[in-house]
């Protein structure tokens, strides 16, 4: 099995007619994802390489029965697109947009929680989600993933996720689902949401968790792991040498005062029984060792 998305997930792409939307949307379709429509206001009735375009999410959902949406629109319009998706009946929204103001994210997150409690937002500023062999929504290259499990991956970073997928695939170890939760300060989906889903997924036998400096989601995850997680977890946290007070590429990757350091996160996770590794390669090797012993 996989978490959040599978071979039956029908996806629309908000922003399909744009350069990025077209590129990634069609790549996702070519991977085998059921990309059933696109949404661009004013361009309803046209198509992108055979994928029908609708004027609104509501129309697209009514016509196609889509339940997931891939939001690929510029920062200025992204939060409106997310809310339109929720209002239109979408229940799983993936937003890859980087550069959304934190205040807009905070308002959007809370509106989703209050008005659309059944909706899950992944991102913003994330690479998306891939259940290898079944469904790929986002910008992850399908080639580097390997179907069949047994590893679930959850990560705040894009390239480090690719690195993890690649290392495992090269060693013949597949993945159930790989979720990029993104590097922004207000992520719609957090580590705990993914860990809980992996814990409940019978095909996922072990989890790779990639964190980074900033915030305290890793520490909260550690608390949750201690009480709930029975499957082995390998973790790597980026930013051990990052200077405080600087945003390290991701808007959420910042050490504020003494808060959000990699050291604190690594200690909390180690204390919760997680295998904490010092670099991505070491984490890959550790996971191979664990999977072989399963």
């Amino acid at each position: 099995m996989s978490i959040f998305v599978d071979e039956n997930t029908k996806v629309i792409v908000q922003g399909l007619t744009g350069g990025q939307g077209r590129f990634h949307g069609l790549r996702n379709r070519d991977y085998g994802t059921k990309v059933v429509g696109g949404v661009t206001p004013g361009k309803g009735g046209t198509d992108v390489d055979g994928v029908p375009v609708f004027n609104s999410v509501k129309e697209a959902v009514e016509a196609t029965g889509a339940t997931a949406s891939f939001v690929v629109v510029p920062p200025k319009f992204a939060t409106a697109a997310i809310l339109e998706a929720a209002e239109g009946g979408i229940t799983f929204i993936v937003c890859i947009t980087e550069g959304i103001p934190a205040h807009d994210e905070a308002i959007t997150y809370n509106r989703l929680v209050e008005e659309f409690p059944g909706v899950r937002l992944l991102g913003p500023n994330c690479p998306g989600i891939i259940s290898p062999g079944k469904c790929n929504i986002g910008i992850t290259s399908g080639d580097i993933a390997l179907a069949g499990g047994p590893v679930g991956i959850v990560s705040r970073s894009g390239t480090l996720t690719y690195q993890a997928l690649h290392e495992l695939s090269q060693k013949g170890i597949g993945q159930t689902t790989c979720v990029g939760i993104g590097g922004d300060p207000v992520p719609g989906t957090n580590f705990i949401d993914c860990l809980r889903a992996f814990q409940d997924d019978p095909e996922t036998k072990a989890v790779m968790m990639i964190g980074e400096i900033g915030g305290s989601e890793e520490e909260r995850a550690a608390e949750w792991i201690k009480l709930n997680m029975t499957k082995p977890i390998v973790s790597y946290i980026a930013g051990v040498t990052a200077p405080p007070g600087r945003k390290m590429g991701h808007a959420g990757a910042i050490i504020s005062g003494s808060k959000g350091t990699a050291q604190a996160k690594m200690e909390a996770l180690a204390e919760a029984g997680v295998h904490v590794c010092n670099n991505p390669t070491e984490a890959g090797e550790k996971m191979v060792e664990i999977v072989k012993a399963l």
Binding site: S155, R156, S157, G158, T159, L160, T161, Y162, Q163, G183, I210, E212, I213, Y236, A238, G239, V240, T241, A242, M248, G249, H250, A253, A262, N278, N279, P280
Partner: peptide, 17 residues
């Protein structure tokens, strides 16, 4: 020089290690 914020951070760490 790295591509991606996570990988760039990780590169700093590995150089230090």
């Amino acid at each position: 020089i790295a591509n991606g914020a996570g990988l760039a951070m990780s590169t700093l760490d590995v150089v230090n290690q």
